[in-house]
């Protein structure tokens, strides 16, 4: 869920765009299937973290699929606060982990 919020933090995206961005963020480690993604999207819409921001084609997908209309999603102000708070919490957790020297390699 955090990764989805993060992928929407700099631009509006459609479902496949979110999948691609999340895979990129995690170095290909987190590949969500459509069911998992839209399950999350449903709950995040209900929680008011994200909202629909219209339908339009995405020419970057190339001929054939570029003309198809896609539904885009964007962060709500609440979603933006949530992603910031979560990043903050993670930064603090990382700080704590560093001070306890639990990360291997020492330099992190």
């Amino acid at each position: 869920m955090f990764h989805i919020l993060l992928s929407l933090s700099n631009e509006d995206r459609h479902g496949y765009g979110i999948m691609q961005d999340v895979a990129e963020q995690t170095g290909g480690g987190l590949k969500m299937g459509p069911g998992t993604l839209y399950g999350c999207i449903k709950r995040m819409l209900a929680a008011g973290l994200i909202e629909e921001s219209g339908e339009r084609p995405d020419p970057s997908l190339g001929p054939g699929s570029g003309e198809e209309r896609r539904r885009y999603y964007s962060l709500t102000p609440l979603g933006r606060r949530a992603v910031r708070a979560e990043a903050q919490r993670m930064a603090e957790a990382l700080q704590a982990a560093r001070s306890k020297r639990v990360l291997v390699g020492g330099k992190v």
Binding site: H14, G15, Y16, M19, P34, G35, L37, Y38, I41, K42, L61, S65, E68, R70, R71
Partner: peptide, 15 residues
């Protein structure tokens, strides 16, 4: 609500 989008996402990933 999501069927069409899921099919689109599946197609793009398969491509």
């Amino acid at each position: 609500r999501f069927g069409r989008e899921m099919r689109q996402a599946f197609r793009e990933r398969w491509r």
